[in-house]
Design a binder for these strands. Structure first.
Lengths: 261, 261
DNA sequence: CCCGGATTCCCACTCAATGGTAATCCTGCT
DNA sequence: AGCAGGATTACCATTGAGTGGGAATCCGGG
């Protein structure tokens, strides 16, 4: 053996380690960490020791390992996500104060929607989004909005892979999805009843960045039986516009309202 | 030369790299990164390449390097900070809706206050707190609350180092600070007029965790000239109690109300 | 006292990581 | 077009940081 029998770099192993933590596993023993990551026991101990030293990991009161506050700090303070989040939060509060269910802000990351902020009670069965949580593009209103405003190569990539059918109403047929995307692009919002959880509906609108591309989706989740959920669209649009403006976007002067590519 | 002439581990260098990014420097060229981190050019390129591959770093539209969304995601989803933040947010919104200036949630990290959430407009000169930003313990109301509820060894450590005097009213004398801490402990809140910025006042109260220790400080910043800022204390206390309860804290049954160290 | 798992200690091996030097690619300026 | 200055990529000889199996030790519960 030598530097990593498996040929893995330290960075990759570091990622394995921090990836072992999620909202369901916020702390664990080193041995368990070794098991979860699949790294050799000794190696795990050595690496963890160093990460503890650097405060990227910490020990809790039981001696278990958890992600260090410093880790969060370093990752947060310089990230573009932070700017987006801060710009959006006030407007999200406004929306939340009216809609009362849950309001989320999502971005596209690799092939999924990553939620970077969320307001509303956490306990609802109705809404499974979490901050720093992911959901598939094709089964969320946020995903549809983001996909509808993505380059066609990206759309093709997403639509060409197997799409999970979560409920009766989940669209999984590429052609049907494309039609739906066209609609979303034209109307400027996505409304999807019960695509991932039968009893709820998602409504999402795009948020624009300075270069007039769509950078995020603002969305609310409401009970499916709620009448005219679409009545929420103007509210959402106004909020999204506010966020966009805070991000440096300027309304188009004149001409068509269709966004570039 | 061999594995790091400077004897530095990859982890430490990785930290140097992500530390080079902050809210003022969200993206930069690799060469600049090399300069900022002090790492050899070649080494920086090699390391950055790998981090790009792992998506801990990303290239923006100009080809500059920025922190990757994945970095934020991994650091956020498993962190205890996240749980605290989520528990606190609804209550912070309530406070913010009444106080209107700015509401923050801070924790103690090494020898400073680290702010993990913040509501209110960002542009105020009055309030310099930022999410994932730090301020010194002795010059903030949050810091005083947290310090007042810390082990005395920690208090000694903080009070024994040189304390910056930001304004006329900043306390820098250890003895005076100790008296103030005793007051804070007894009253259950800290109110500090213009300790870091002359024209504003901070008011902070403790947030308790399940084991009845203080885990965070909830605070508002208001203009200093505002009459009876202390009138805000009950509001803050009620909110802090709500957060504490959401974290699993149960009110003491009976007996003294003094909290254990 | 015993048992099983977690943790720490030990150590010989070796290739991943290193960082100079030099070539190449840009980009703006003349 | 040609030039200047910086950013980026390519090359490569060198070596100690990283590795991981194994054994000893610690610890908590029954």
């Amino acid at each position: 053996m030598a530097n990593s029998a498996s040929g893995e770099s330290i960075i990759r192993r570091f990622i394995r380690i921090i990836s072992a933590f999620d909202d369901k596993h916020t702390s664990m023993s080193v041995a368990e960490l070794s098991r979860r990551t699949g790294l050799p026991v000794t190696t795990t101990y050595r690496l963890v020791d160093e990460l503890l030293l650097e405060r990227l990991l910490e020990r809790d009161s039981n001696g278990n390992i958890e992600l260090g506050t410093r880790m969060w700090e370093l990752a947060s303070r310089g990230s573009k996500t932070q700017g987006l989040r801060e710009a959006a939060l006030p407007f999200m509060e406004d929306v939340q104060s009216v809609v009362q269910h849950s309001t989320t802000l999502g971005v596209l990351d690799s092939d999924e929607v990553l939620y970077i902020e969320r307001l509303g009670s956490t306990s609802t069965i109705m809404d499974i989004t979490k901050v720093a949580g992911r959901l598939p593009v094709h089964a969320t209103s946020s995903g549809m909005v983001l996909l509808a405003n993505s380059p066609s190569a990206y759309q093709d990539m997403i639509l060409s892979r197997p799409l999970t059918k979560y409920t009766e109403t989940t669209l999984t047929d590429p052609a049907a999805l494309r039609r739906h995307l066209a609609e979303v692009r034209q109307r400027g919002f996505a409304a999807m009843p019960g695509v991932i959880v039968p009893e709820s509906s998602g409504i999402a609108v795009p948020v624009y960045g300075p270069d007039n591309t769509v950078v995020a989706a603002l969305s609310v989740v409401v009970p499916r039986d709620e009448e005219n959920a679409a009545a929420r669209v103007p509210l959402l649009m106004a909020a999204a516009r506010g966020i966009s403006r805070a991000l440096g976007w300027r309304a188009k002067l004149k001409g068509t309202l269709r966004q570039s590519h």
